[in-house]
Structures are given as C-alpha cells and as structure tokens.
Amino acid sequence: MKRLLMFLIIIVFLIFFDVLISISLPYYLRPNIWLAYIVFVALFKSHIESVVSGFVLGVIYDVIHLTVFGVNILLFSSVGYVCGWLNKHVDETLWNVQLIVMFLGTMVYVFLYFLLLLIIKISKPGIHHLLSIISTVVVGFILIRLLNLFYSQQIDRQL
C-alpha cells in the first residue's frame, strides 16, 4: 500500500514537472523525465518492476499527451526491459554507472522511436529530435541522483 502511494505521488510529480518543462522549453529540447524514472526503477528496484512501471507510465503518458495511443507503452516497456537486465549486475550507486545507463536508456528510446516513426509514420523524423537526447541524459542523471539520495535516506530510516 505504501509503495503504491509512493508510486502515485511520484506520478503526480512527474506530470507536474512534465507540464513545467513543456511550457518552458521547445519540444526538441524537452527532457523526458519519465524515462529517467524508469531507468531509476531498473537500477534500484527490480527487473519486473521496471517493465511494469514502463508499462504504467507509458499508458499515462499516452493518455495525457494524446499521442498515438500505444507508442509510449511500447517504448517505455522496452526501455524498462532492456535497462532491467542490468539490475544487480552493476553497482547502481556509482555516478558514472547511472550516467551510462541513463544514456543507454535514452538511446534505446530514441532508436525505437525513430523505428516507429518509419513504420507507422506518426510524424516526420528530424535531426532536431536528437537534441532532446542531451537534455534527457543531463536532467535524467540529476533526477536519478536526487531519487537515489531520497531512496537511500528512506532505506537508512527503515534500518
């Protein structure tokens, strides 16, 4: 119950920050903070949780962003699945590991996104879409560090 509540609070925060980012930045510079959360879950929680959170966040993202329904379910689930393989195989507390996994997750997302663009032609792929990789990796890394801090404090309290 507590975990579910935490998950819901995080979703509310993600929506709120997503709106803030959407208002303040052009679409090609917007970082994908949802992706950062999925990468965080893949590193710190478990493989199955990363896939499930990818699926749930994908559904929410598709509903509130009114994109082609199903695209982000596929993308986020895939990112969760791929990054989830690294769970318990790497030292997730190291900053360089977090940065690399965040970059890997973003690349998986962008690659699949471009692949989908070619298949279902939802919009024209452009080079400027790649600019969001930098912002996603940077903001995502900061977010993972913050979540890591929060998560470790919670574990300390439980101990």
């Binding site: 493989h47 990363s50 596929l74 689930s77």
Partner: peptide, 21 residues
C-alpha cells in the same frame, strides 16, 4: 522469466492499441 513474459504482454498490448488506432 516473469519480466520477459510481462514485457511480451505489454508489447502485445501496445501493438494491439496501435493497430486499432
């Protein structure tokens, strides 16, 4: 193989959504 099974199910669901779009 629980993650893989769930991943395949979510893929199936998303493809279903995309095809019915």
């Amino acid at each position: 193989y629980r993650p893989t099974i769930f991943f395949i199910l979510s893929l199936f669901f998303s493809i279903l959504c995309l095809s019915t779009q």
